[in-house]
Design a protein around this nucleic acid. Structure first.
Length: 305
DNA sequence: ACCCAGGCGGGCG
DNA sequence: CGCCCGCATGGG
């Protein structure tokens, strides 16, 4: 056994379940226990357990880890617990559709993840589905991740594999994880991010700078770059436009009329300014969770502004 | 069996 | 540029 410690903190407007289920990088390989509403994940070489008790509006987050000083800061950072959701909801709640999403998924947070990990996760996400993304990422962690040991040298978890590790993996080994045609992107990105680009040296506040730099990575285009900027750097100016967000915007705000990606970016910027990253998460998840007949109700909704 | 999944790069007009 | 196509793989 390792020497674990526990602490707890009061949190407002937080819901671990919605956050976990809403398909973000952290949640692709963490172990979530719905009965306990708790999550175990690796942050570098540290294993952290988070449990959410009490309600969404006002509850408690319990943290268990070997290094509590590190872990409690990590949890606050990772789940963006310092975000004032009351104020963010006020900014992004421009209409009935978003109001409904906030009502259903109140407490769902954006997560802030390691930039490299986020890059790999979203390269894998392309032309793929969430279930398979989870399984591929888990396979990669199991096969390539550095083991985390307890006091008896027993493996109790694995870190997400670094770019150095993955650049030395063969395409064949990567394919065995189920990566498919994305294996060469991962390999190439691992080489590039080890030799030519320091992901940890980029300015998280410079949206356009980040986008330009990230799109130099093989396998990273407009949408994946925005995901990395949003969930790997925490820059809320990013508004990733995937097929779901595109459908949502077209259906809800343009009566189903087709719009170009550029037009959607412009629309999002005008509507939700520098909070649009949060809007994207609430639009995406609400629309994804709805059934088709329910989606029809939201065509051409009234906007407040 | 067939279809689709949080896109991207390359090739063509 | 803008548009179109193929792409590994497994679950519904």
């Amino acid at each position: 056994m390792q020497d674990f410690h526990a602490t707890s903190m009061q949190v407002k407007d937080f819901d671990l379940r919605h956050t976990f289920e809403s398909a973000q990088p952290l949640t692709f390989h963490a172990d979530y226990n719905p009965a306990l509403n708790s999550l175990i994940y690796a942050s570098g070489k540290n294993l952290i357990s988070v449990m959410h008790v009490g309600g969404t509006g006002s509850g408690k987050v319990m943290v268990v880890s070997e290094d509590l000083g590190f872990a409690s800061n990590e949890v606050i950072r990772r789940f963006r617990l310092n975000d004032n959701m009351r104020s963010i909801y006020k900014k992004i709640n421009t209409d009935q559709f978003i109001a409904e999403s906030i009502k259903r998924y109140r407490g769902m947070r954006l997560t802030l993840n390691d930039p490299w990990e986020t890059t790999v996760c979203f390269i894998i996400s392309q032309f793929n589905n969430v279930k398979r993304i989870r399984s591929i990422i888990k396979n990669m962690v199991a096969r390539f991740g550095e083991p985390i040991l307890d006091g008896d040298n027993k493996i109790i978890g694995r870190a997400f594999p670094s770019s150095e590790i993955l650049r030395n993996a063969s395409i064949k080994e990567l394919m065995k994880c189920g990566t498919g045609f994305r294996a060469r992107y991962i390999k190439s990105a691992a080489e590039y991010c080890t030799d030519n680009l320091d992901l940890y040296g980029l300015n998280q506040n410079d949206y356009y700078g980040l986008k330009e730099a990230l799109m130099e990575i093989d396998g990273v285009g407009d949408k994946v770059a925005d995901c990395i900027i949003l969930m790997g750097y925490g820059n809320l100016n990013a508004f990733p436009v995937d097929v779901w967000v595109k459908r949502t915007i077209e259906k809800v705000y343009f009566k189903g009329k087709k719009k170009k990606i550029k037009e959607i970016h412009k629309f999002a910027e005008d509507m939700w300014q520098n909070w649009r990253g949060y809007t994207q998460q609430y639009l995406f998840w609400h629309f994804r969770q709805m059934k088709n007949d329910e989606r029809r109700v939201y065509e051409g909704i009234k906007q407040r502004y």
